[in-house]
């Protein structure tokens, strides 16, 4: 067995910190509130946040390439309302789902194309995408639209029982499949590795002959798809379409990535991270709910504070890396033995 200290390195320190945070929060909740320890409370974390897990995971790919996607929350609202209104018009449920997923892919690919082809800033392009999606929502309907379609009702009410009385929803199943696929994609496919290479050093990636343009467009397409899928899960969860759904959720997704150890500067992070980020944020929300006297805005403040801490932690890692590099160059001229802790030139 390898030493633990060897296992902890700057690549996984944030994940470990996040895990520690989740355990801490869960422990605190369990000790402070009766009923917190129940299995269903834990599973509800997944049920309530399944859509966010999907979206944050999709966003993670974009962030790893060094980009950002601000359009996700608006697009979820768009999916919810277009689903509701198409169902109202009598379109078949599965056709509607297929259509929205397709729309997500086209929308994301379009954003990716603009960003890569014209070298536009991803913040600006996806900001425009955010406006566009939200605006289209209002065009379809400014009112909340109830969903009464049988298929959707069925999907919504479906309970998959695990461990006796406890259950999870279809959305949770989808989110787990999505995360598993994302992890596989990131680790075992060329595309996944190109994502890291592009985020690590674009010009190097280009010089190594990697398809930088295709990768960039692909990650935004993936993010568009994940927003559509997340939108579907969310629509099933809410049973309604509304233009004002999930205002500002894009920041939650970004925060989940940051807390989950996806470096905002790109090039680093594990795809399991966003899930952990979402879970710790959900845990905070649950604790505040159980606490009862604290208002919901405390969630925002605590999450913001966590965001600050994790950004600081990310920054420290980057600084430390820079220092180490400086040392290794400096040491070359004085004591070359000490720098080669990891490397032994025989």
């Amino acid at each position: 067995m390898k030493k633990i200290s060897h296992r902890i390195n700057e690549n996984n320190i944030i994940i470990i910190a996040t895990l520690f945070l989740i355990v801490l929060l869960y422990g605190y909740g369990s000790l402070s509130f009766t009923g917190f320890l129940s299995m269903q409370v834990f599973l509800n974390l997944f049920i309530d946040n399944a859509y966010l897990i999907i979206i944050a995971t999709g966003m993670a790919f974009v962030i790893i390439t060094g980009g950002i996607d601000l359009s996700v929350a608006s697009f979820v609202a768009f999916v919810s309302i277009i689903t509701a209104s198409l169902l109202e018009h009598g379109l078949h449920a599965y056709l509607v789902i297929l259509l929205t997923l397709l729309l997500g892919i086209i929308f994301g690919a379009g954003q990716g194309y603009l960003i890569f082809r014209f070298q536009l800033h991803p913040w600006i392009v996806t900001l425009a995408g955010m406006f566009l999606a939200r605006g289209l929502c209002y065009l379809i309907s400014t009112e909340s639209v109830e969903i009464t379609d049988n298929t959707f009702m069925f999907l919504s009410d479906y309970k998959l029982y695990v461990m006796g009385e406890n259950y999870i929803s279809i959305g949770v199943v989808l989110s787990i499949i999505f995360v598993a696929a994302a992890i596989y994609l990131s680790k075992y496919t060329s595309f996944g590795r190109y994502v890291y290479a592009v985020g690590g050093n674009v010009s190097s990636a280009r010089l190594m002959g990697l398809p930088v343009g295709k990768t960039t467009i692909m990650v935004y397409t993936l993010s568009g798809f994940s927003s559509a899928l997340g939108g579907f899960v969310f629509t099933v969860y809410m049973q309604s379409g509304y233009a004002l759904h999930l205002m500002g959720m894009e920041m939650d997704a970004i925060a989940a990535c940051v807390i989950g150890g996806i470096l905002l500067t790109g090039g680093a992070g594990y795809l399991i991270g966003p899930v952990l980020g979402v879970l710790s944020m959900g845990m905070i929300q649950t604790i505040i709910m159980f606490q009862g006297t604290l208002s919901s805005w405390w969630t925002k403040i605590v999450v913001g504070f966590l965001l600050f801490l994790f950004i600081l932690l990310q920054r420290l890692i980057v600084i430390r890396r820079g220092k180490k590099r400086m040392h290794s160059i400096a040491d070359l001229h004085t004591d070359s033995a000490s720098t080669k802790q990891h490397a032994s030139i025989s």
Binding site: R193, Y196, A197, G199, G200, N201, S204, L207, M208, A268
Partner: peptide
């Protein structure tokens, strides 16, 4: 001209 965030082998 390599990516520092990837492993040597990669």
């Amino acid at each position: 001209n390599l990516c520092e965030n990837l492993s040597v082998a990669e």
